[in-house]
C-alpha cells in the first residue's frame, strides 16, 4: 500500500489551522517552557565560566630567601613549571616586588622612604589549574626547600570557594533538570488536551477503516510543527537576550569576565529546537495512542 506523504502534511497543516486556538496554546506552552529552559542553560553556562575564571585567580606565592642566587631561583622556577597541577608561573624579582610595593603605597611614600630597593624577597607567583590542588603543590614546594612560612596561599578561601561553587553548579544542574521535566509534562499535557477534544474524530477514522498509523501520522506532524515553531521562537528569544546581556555586562561590569564565547550559540540553538521537536512528536504520539483503541 502506498501512502502519499503530501496527504499527511496537508492534513496536519489543515488541522493546525482549524484548531487554531489549541495550536496557539500548544505553541505558547512550548515557547514558555523552552524559554525558561534556555535561560537556565545560559545562566549556568555563564555562572560556571565565571566560577572557573575566579578559580584561576587563586595563586600561591613562594618567597625565596634573601640570599638565593639567580641561578638557584631559575632552576626552582623551571622545576615548578613542570608540576602537572600548575597552570603558569611568574617570577617576581626583588626590584619588581619593590615597584609593586611602591605602587600600592603611592599615597603615603613615607612607608618605603627609608627602605632600600632590595628589602623585599624575590618570589614565584604560581597559578593553579585547579585550586583544589593548593595543598599538594605547597607540599611539593616545601620539598624544593621553601619553608612553610615562606609560602602564602589562601587555603581557607580556596576551600570555601570550592564548596560554594560545587553547590552553585549542582543547584543549577538540578534546576535545569526540574525545568526540563516540568516542560515535558506541561507540553504533553497540552497536546493531550487538544487531542482529547478530537477523540470522536479519531473514533470515526478508525470505524471507516483507517489504520493506527494512518490516523496518527497527521497528529504527529502537527505536534512536530507546533513544537518546532514554539522552540524556534524561544531559541531566538534566548539567544537575543543573551547577546543583550553580554553587551550590557561588558559595559556595566567590566571587571566580571563575562564573554559571548562562554556559550556556543549553535549548540544552544540545536539543543532547544531539537528538544521542542522531540517533545512535540513524542507528546502527540503518546496522546493519540490512548484513543486508538477502537
Amino acid at each position: 500500500m502506498k501512502f502519499n506523504p503530501r496527504f499527511f502534511v496537508r492534513e496536519a497543516l489543515k488541522n493546525v489551522r482549524l484548531n487554531l486556538l489549541m495550536s496557539i496554546t500548544a505553541v505558547t506552552t512550548t515557547f514558555i517552557c523552552i524559554l525558561v529552559l534556555g535561560a537556565a542553560i545560559l545562566i549556568s553556562a555563564h555562572v560556571s565560566s565565571l566560577i572557573s575564571s575566579v578559580r584561576q585567580d587563586v595563586t600561591i606565592s613562594a618567597f625565596f630567601p634573601q640570599d638565593a642566587s639567580q641561578k638557584k631561583m631559575d632552576s626552582v622556577r623551571n622545576s615548578v613549571e613542570n608540576y602537572p597541577q600548575v597552570g603558569s608561573v611568574k617570577f617576581v624579582s626583588k626590584q619588581q616586588a619593590y615597584e609593586n610595593f611602591k605602587k600600592r603605597f603611592k599615597d603615603n611614600p613615607q612607608v618605603y622612604q627609608d627602605l632600600g630597593s632590595d628589602f623585599l624577597p624575590a618570589s614565584l607567583e604560581i597559578k593553579l589549574k585547579n585550586p583544589k590542588d593548593a595543598g599538594v603543590v605547597a607540599r611539593k614546594l616545601e620539598s624544593e626547600g621553601f619553608a612553610p612560612k615562606d609560602l602564602s596561599y589562601p587555603q581557607q578561601t580556596i576551600n570555601r570557594l570550592n564548596r560554594v561553587t560545587d553547590y552553585i553548579v549542582w543547584g543549577l544542574r538540578g534546576a535545569t533538570a526540574l525545568f526540563l521535566a516540568a516542560s515535558v509534562l506541561l507540553i504533553s499535557n497540552t497536546i493531550r488536551l487538544s487531542i482529547f477534544a478530537r477523540r470522536k474524530e479519531i473514533e470515526v477514522m478508525k470505524l471507516v477503516g483507517a489504520s493506527d498509523s494512518f490516523v496518527r501520522t497527521p497528529f504527529v506532524i502537527e505536534g512536530l510543527v507546533q513544537g518546532l515553531v514554539g522552540a524556534v521562537i524561544a531559541a531566538i528569544a534566548v539567544i537575543w537576550a543573551n547577546s543583550l546581556f553580554v553587551e550590557w555586562a561588558h559595559n556595566a561590569l567590566p571587571f566580571f569576565p563575562i564573554s559571548g564565547s562562554d556559550v556556543s550559540i549553535l549548540y544552544v540553538l540545536a539543543v532547544l529546537v531539537g528538544l521542542g521537536a522531540m517533545i512535540g512528536v513524542l507528546g502527540s504520539y503518546l496522546s493519540v495512542r490512548r484513543f486508538l483503541r477502537v
Partner: peptide, 25 residues
C-alpha cells in the same frame, strides 16, 4: 452508516467521502 452519521466535521462532503478511499491508500 450510523444513526448519528459520524462525519468528520472538519471535512467537506466530498472530503469525507474521499477519506474512506484515502485510508485504503
Amino acid at each position: 452508516v450510523f444513526q448519528d452519521f459520524k462525519l468528520l466535521p472538519n471535512k467537506t462532503a466530498a472530503e469525507n467521502v474521499a477519506y474512506a478511499m484515502e485510508v485504503t491508500g
